Amino acid sequence: MQDVKIKIKDRDGVTHEIDAPTDMNMNLMEVVKSYELAPEGTIGVCGGMAMCASCQCYVHSDHNLPEKSDDEDAMLAEAFYVEDNSRLGCQIHITSELEGLEVELAPES
């Protein structure tokens, strides 16, 4: 089992350095939920289907993430508080390449 260290700034501005497992096929949204870094019902509302943008985050580190899917692009086009570095957490799968990833949860819309 290999975990990666990820820094996540929650919506209150508190940064959490967490260990995210790479062997459980989790995505960033699921990690945020499992560590309870956002109030219940405010993140992952659609269940990780790229249909709600409740898991939008800002990627602050220089990681080579997979390209956005058409669904992710379309959802971000309709979301609030979108920045150039916005991604949907449900579309970022936890892999060993994410060691040191730094993200900030976007404000609740």
Rank of each mutant, 00 (worst) to 15 (best):
L76H: 04
C52E: 15
S86K: 10
E97P: 03
E30P: 00
S86E: 12
L98I: 03
Q56G: 01
G100S: 13
L101R: 13
G100P: 09
K68C: 10
A79T: 06
E17G: 00
E102K: 15
M75K: 03
D84S: 11
Q56S: 06
A79R: 01
Y58H: 14
A77C: 01
A50F: 00
K68W: 09
G48R: 02
E99L: 10
V14C: 01
V103E: 15
V32I: 13
L76Y: 03
R11E: 05
M26Q: 14
C52F: 12
E104G: 11
V14I: 15
S54P: 14
N25F: 07
R87G: 09
G13K: 00
H16L: 08
N85Q: 12
M29D: 09
C90A: 11
L76T: 09
V31M: 04
A74F: 11
G41S: 10
D19Y: 07
E36R: 11
T22N: 08
L65Y: 07
I18Q: 03
E67G: 14
C52Y: 08
M49Q: 13
A77P: 01
A38R: 03
L28V: 04
K68P: 04
H60G: 01
A38Q: 08
I92C: 11
D73G: 03
M75G: 01
L28T: 05
G44C: 04
D71I: 02
I94P: 09
C55I: 07
G44K: 03
A20K: 06
C57P: 03
I94M: 14
N64G: 03
D10C: 00
Y35K: 14
M75E: 12
V82K: 01
N25W: 02
L37S: 09
P39M: 00
D23A: 11
R87V: 11
A77W: 01
A79Q: 05
T95N: 14
Q56H: 15
D70R: 06
E17K: 08
P21R: 09
V14P: 00
C55Q: 13
L76M: 08
V31N: 01
M24H: 06
D71N: 12
T42S: 15
M75H: 02
L37C: 07
